[in-house]
């Protein structure tokens, strides 16, 4: 049962992402991406990570996508762009990425599968213990960093 659900969700994620890239309308692309994020969130849930699943929905599907949608509507980018055949040069990054990804997959596929320890998932409590105890320094630094990223964004975006 779980396997079937997983494959359905994986298919939805993949199709959603591909459609998000190929959609001509910016708003359509975002709706596809949100669909793919929801499917991804469910995959995380299946894998025993309810926290990550809820983050995926709240942060990505919720906050970030609303922000994208807001920007697209504000800048009025709703009109589809003209079709342009990408030049050969433009393909370079894509090809590079393809090589990196196939290389990584090849490395992973070439080794014998090691059985994972039984993983029952972690509770919110365990998660927060690890987060604030083991990674306490990182949390502090990130909070400072967000403050100063905000200061910088405000400075650069302020009206002259």
């Amino acid at each position: 049962m779980e396997t079937i659900v997983f494959y359905i969700l994986a298919a939805v994620t993949l199709v959603g992402t591909v459609l998000a890239i190929t959609a001509r309308q910016g708003v359509h692309a975002i709706v596809y991406l949100v669909t793919s994020f929801f499917a991804l969130a469910l995959i995380f849930y299946l894998l025993g990570a309810p926290m990550v699943a809820s983050f995926e929905v709240i942060i990505y599907a919720g906050a970030i996508m609303v922000l994208f949608l807001f920007v697209i509507m504000m800048l009025d980018l709703g009109k589809p762009e003209k079709i342009q055949t990408p030049k050969l040069y433009d393909w370079c990054p894509a090809i590079l990425l393809l090589v990196v990804i196939t290389g990584s997959m090849g490395v992973l596929a070439s080794r014998a599968a090691t059985p994972l320890n039984a993983f029952a998932g972690i509770s919110v409590q365990e998660f927060s213990f690890t987060l604030f105890k083991r990674y306490g320094a990182a949390i502090e630094i990130i909070s400072m960093q967000l403050l100063f990223a905000l200061v910088g964004a405000l400075y650069l975006g302020r009206r002259r």
């Binding site: 990130i142 100063f148 990223a149 400075y155």
Partner: peptide
């Protein structure tokens, strides 16, 4: 992780400073 975050703290400030 701390090294990476330090680098990010540095870089984000520098991006703004370069375009100051």
């Amino acid at each position: 992780m701390v090294i990476f975050l330090g680098l990010e703290v540095l870089s984000i400030s520098l991006y703004v400073l370069a375009g100051f």
